[in-house]
């Protein structure tokens, strides 16, 4: 089995287990051809949507990928500050953006993406109780994670950060950035190693980082827990 087929098989196997409906928004750019038909104008968008349709088609109708053109939806573009395409958004029931992907969920990145979909759909979140206990100590925060497809530790850091965001009742937002496809962002933050975690555009952590360190960085002190 080729590597691509292997990963497709994982997507099929895991997405078939999704039992609750969930919707993701994907922003692309489209242009109108002379005959009136629309085609995707951004370079990566078609490949990106083909990949996301694999997730959708194997979810027994539970996952809906809503593709929105930035050209036709200026109000959403403004509301969610969409500055590049393609962009995937996880938006909660209160209209709050929880997770933003500026990265294609392929290869090793399939795992955190699927786990995020399941947790977004209501599956148990291992970190939820502790995040909620410390919620009043967490300021509204954005965790940016720079990753590459070949980075072995990126999926774990992304999983932890996304689980934190999904448990945080809108206080934490994550942005997952593939710096091979968004080199300007990597250069802006002087990233020369991955995973590269940036908390509130202030604290940066290069390399593998566990849940304790991320939570400590968010609350600026010791973690409080009661069992």
């Amino acid at each position: 089995m080729s590597s691509d087929e292997h990963y497709k098989e994982i997507i099929r196997r895991e997405m078939a287990k999704l039992k609750t409906p969930v919707k993701l928004k994907v922003f692309t750019s489209q242009r109108i051809e002379a005959d009136g038909s629309k085609i995707r104008a951004c370079m990566d968008c078609s490949q990106f949507m083909t990949l996301l349709r694999i997730y959708e088609e194997n979810s027994n109708g539970m996952l809906t990928i809503e593709e929105m053109s930035i050209d036709d939806n200026p109000e959403f573009v403004k509301q969610y500050d969409i500055s590049r395409v393609p962009t995937i958004l996880f938006i909660d029931n209160n209209g709050r953006e929880v997770i933003r992907y500026l990265a294609a969920p392929q290869g090793a990145e399939i795992q955190p993406f699927i786990q995020s979909i399941f947790t977004f759909a209501g599956a148990p979140n291992y970190y939820e109780a502790t995040i909620k206990q410390n919620l009043n100590r967490i300021e509204p925060s954005t965790i940016k994670i720079m990753m590459t497809e070949t980075c072995p530790y990126c999926p774990q850091v992304i999983t932890i950060a996304n689980m934190f965001a999904l448990a945080s009742e809108g206080k934490i937002r994550t942005v997952i950035i593939d710096i091979n496809h968004n080199q300007d962002i990597g250069q802006y933050y002087d990233a020369a190693g991955v995973p590269y975690t940036i908390i509130n555009d202030q604290k940066t952590i290069t390399g593998m980082v566990g849940p304790n360190e991320i939570l400590r960085s968010l609350i600026g002190g010791n973690i409080r827990v009661s069992y």
Binding site: T150, C151, A192, G193, P195, T206
Partner: peptide, 16 residues
Amino acid sequence: FTGRGVSYCATCDGPF
């Protein structure tokens, strides 16, 4: 300079 040229993982950071 860790993360700015110093690395402990060629697989992670070699492409930079």
